[in-house]
Design a protein around this nucleic acid. Structure first.
Lengths: 156, 156
DNA sequence: CTATATGCAAAACGTTTGCATCCCT
DNA sequence: AGGGATGCAAACGTTTTGCATATAG
């Protein structure tokens, strides 16, 4: 899903909830769905800084409020993978992926696996639940040297 | 692992790191590992309140500091399952389990599954990583009415 | 024109830290 | 006795909120 499709979907949500499509919301959505920054799962601050580059008047509060709306619209997912900040992940409705995270540098590799999904359903049923959602994060050390310069692999 | 074993293990860790076993640390560990509250994954505040019932002089800071030590000792695991607070899970060294969470009331059912574990290793390798750790949380709706009175199942 | 959104600054929250005092070892 | 631990309160970083102003529909 590219940025303009995300804006379109966001607008559908906004209209149906008596909210307005403002230039800030368009800008934030475009920056959030920027294809060159995919899978980066920005923090609010990172998104704020990127948005500011294009419009220096946007305030923190607008980022927070818009991100909350994007979550409600099903277009963003708050994600506290590590132990620190909240990161937001651009969501494509209907799709789902899990995360493989590099222990050295935090690089996130997204993946999907049918076998896992099937097993999860099975386990949920065994435990007496109907599976609604799930999250899975694998933490690992790269077998090959990691591309990132800041990766700690080998540094300890 | 019962409370007194947890205290023993904690003490081993403390000794080997030139830290001391104080009455507050004993109390906090005992409350944290109280078998009747297992799988509750308390927040700092919840733990603080329970500890206060037994010794009203204990301060917030001591809870935070002790929990951090317990994490370093491998006896507690910080856990940000939902979108809100940090919860801490009593850990038994060498064991690992995943979570099935009731969408209605937040009830956490812990489970282990060998097939999942195997698949995770396989996926990590496929993606070029050596698996170090993982977390998996399933969110579901109970098939049978949930035991908890505050469970929202059916209320929507 | 009206209702909603914005930006700012203040407030609210969870968490950490500095410091004087206390207490394990 | 001495190094570490405690409790308190202040400091911190993130997130939320109140309010006057601006703007989309």
């Amino acid at each position: 899903m590219d940025a303009s499709e995300a804006v379109t979907r966001f607008n559908e949500y906004l209209k149906s909830h008596k909210h307005k499509l403002t230039k800030q919301r368009i800008l934030i959505t475009e920056v959030f769905f920027d294809p060159s920054k995919r899978a980066e799962h920005p923090t609010v601050e990172e998104l704020y800084l990127r948005v500011k580059e294009r419009d220096s008047n946007v305030g923190h509060a607008t980022i927070y409020r818009t991100l909350k709306l994007l979550v409600d619209a099903g277009l963003a997912l708050p994600n506290r993978i590590g132990e620190d900040l909240t990161r937001y992940e651009p969501e494509v409705p209907g799709e789902h992926h899990d995360h493989m995270i590099c222990h050295g540098c935090g690089l996130i590799v997204e993946f999907e696996d049918e076998d896992i999904e099937r097993l999860q359903e099975e386990i949920a049923h065994r435990l007496g639940f109907n599976l609604l959602d799930h999250s899975m994060n694998l933490i690992g050390e790269p077998l090959q040297p990691c591309a990132r310069q800041d990766c700690l692999r080998g540094a300890h």
